[in-house]
Amino acid sequence: MKVIFLKDVKGKGKKGEIKNVADGYANNFLFKQGLAIEATPANLKAL
């Protein structure tokens, strides 16, 4: 799943980066902690 990092995550990505991560990691950690959002066309356009 492509995500947009909202904050720096050690070993994974920096704020503003768009990266592919495992679905479970994105859903269970990044999204719940507010560290990233899904890289949907609408979210990409908002950058």
Rank of each mutant, 00 (worst) to 15 (best):
P41G: 09
G34N: 15
A42Q: 07
L6C: 08
G16D: 14
F29E: 07
V9D: 02
K19S: 14
D23I: 14
G34T: 06
L44I: 14
P41N: 14
N20Y: 15
A42H: 07
I4M: 11
F5H: 01
K14H: 15
N27C: 12
K15A: 13
L47M: 14
V9P: 01
E17C: 07
F31S: 03
A46D: 14
L30Y: 02
G24V: 09
A42C: 11
K12T: 15
K19V: 13
K15F: 03
N20E: 11
F29V: 15
D8K: 05
K32E: 14
M1D: 03
I18G: 01
N43D: 07
A22C: 14
G24I: 08
L35H: 04
E17W: 02
K32V: 10
G16H: 14
I4N: 00
T40W: 02
V21H: 07
L30A: 02
G16I: 00
G11C: 02
E17S: 05
K2E: 09
G34H: 04
F29K: 10
N43A: 07
L35A: 10
L47P: 07
G16C: 04
G13A: 09
N20K: 13
L35C: 05
A22T: 15
K45L: 10
G34W: 05
N28W: 01
V3G: 01
A22R: 06
L6D: 03
F31I: 13
L35M: 09
V21K: 03
V9M: 06
N27T: 15
G11W: 10
F5K: 00
V9I: 13
K10R: 13
G16V: 01
D8S: 14
L47S: 05
D23H: 13
L30M: 05
K10A: 14
M1N: 15
F29S: 09
P41A: 13
K45G: 11
D8C: 11
K14V: 13
A26G: 07
N27R: 15
G24P: 13
I4S: 02
I18V: 14
G13F: 13
F31T: 04
A46V: 12
G24M: 08
K45W: 12
E17R: 01
I4H: 03
Y25H: 09
G16N: 10
K45M: 09
V3W: 00
I18Q: 03
K2Q: 01
G13D: 05
L30K: 01
K7C: 12
M1V: 06
P41D: 11
Y25S: 14
V21N: 05
K2G: 03
K45N: 14
G11H: 04
K10C: 07
F29A: 10
A22Y: 08
K12F: 06
V3P: 00
K45E: 14
A46K: 03
V21R: 01
N28I: 03
L6W: 02
I4F: 15
K2P: 00
N28P: 03
N43K: 12
K7Y: 10
N43T: 08
T40H: 11
L35R: 06
